[in-house]
Structures are given as C-alpha cells and as structure tokens.
Design a binder for these strands. Structure first.
Length: 161
DNA sequence: GCGACAG
DNA sequence: ATCTTGTCGC
C-alpha cells in the first residue's frame, strides 16, 4: 500500500468527496497487467441488525478458477449507504478481508462500480488505488450513465473495451 | 426545488 | 444490502 494514499475513513460526506477528487488523479486506466495467475473476488453482507458488516475474499487460480484460499473479516458499520460513497461504507471491511488472504492476487474484482462513477472513483477504483493493484468493478446495476451506447447493445454478453 | 441513486 | 412473495425452469 502506498502510504501517500492513506486517508481516514471516518469522515463527513463532504470530506469523502474531497478525498475522491484527490485520489482520482492517480488512476491508471491503461492496461499494465502482464500476467494473471491469481485473482480475488470480494463481497460484503450485513448482520440482521445492520450494525455489523462481513466481507469475504476468495482467491482463485486463473484461468482454471480453482479456489485457492478464502478469508473473511467483520467490522462495525460506521458509514451510511450514500450512492457514490459506497467505498467509505464497505471499503474498510473489504480491505480487512483481503488482508487476511495469505497470498496476494494479481487483480481483484469488486461488487461495485469502478470508474463508472460520478467521480470515477467507485469502490473498485478506490480500493485498487489504495492497494496499488489492478481492479475491476462488477456492479449489478447502473449508478451513472447508460449501458447502451455506441457499439454496446442490450444483448446479454455485449461488451466494449 | 425535484427526482435519481453501486450496495 | 436485506426481506418477502410470486413465478419460472429443470
């Protein structure tokens, strides 16, 4: 982790957006990945009372997708869900789970957006930067913009670089 | 001011 | 995210 990217998580909404603006300029959008041998996927769930968050990180071999390792972590929820500020809610516990993996992945997939975000700093972008690791945002619904654009249809499997 | 809005 | 109900497909 590059220490100059460290920042507090317990911040006001305004401060959180300032942090996003400061971090976004460090984004690396061109592909610098040489080889991928290990990939990680992370997701978060909440306790029934919604007071605690639990994250799981799974490490798989690529491209076989054989599960190599699994790690979990729990943490109290200290930040509300605000569209655009998800990383300030789920980031801490996700980092904790990834830290519990014995081996480090080459890339990480997150259950949230990456650069498809109003500040281009969704969960995947944010944590990818903090970890100095290539990341992919895999959200299940749009936050901003439209899926259908030039060269990208609505058909399942549609894609653009 | 009103509506939209990852998980 | 979580919860609950109804519907669909194997």
């Amino acid at each position: 982790m590059r220490t100059y990217h460290l920042h507090p998580w317990d911040v006001t909404f305004e401060k959180a957006r300032e942090i996003q603006q400061g971090l976004k300029r460090h984004l690396v959008l061109e592909n610098r990945v040489s080889e991928i041998r290990l990939i990680a996927g992370v997701d978060v769930a909440y306790s029934k009372t919604k007071e605690k968050a639990y994250a799981v990180a799974v490490l798989l071999a690529f491209p076989s997708l054989e599960i190599i390792e699994e790690a979990i972590a729990g943490a109290p929820v200290t930040f509300p869900y605000i569209p655009g500020l998800l990383s300030f809610r789920e980031g801490p516990v996700v980092l904790k789970a990834l830290k519990n993996l014995k081996k480090g992945p080459d890339i990480i997939l997150f259950d949230g957006h990456g650069i498809a975000h109003p500040a281009r700093l969704g969960l995947a972008s944010h944590l990818g930067l903090l970890l100095d690791k290539p990341s992919i945002g895999c959200a299940k619904s749009p936050l901003v913009g439209q899926f259908c654009q030039e060269g990208l249809g609505y058909e399942k499997g549609s894609w653009v670089p």
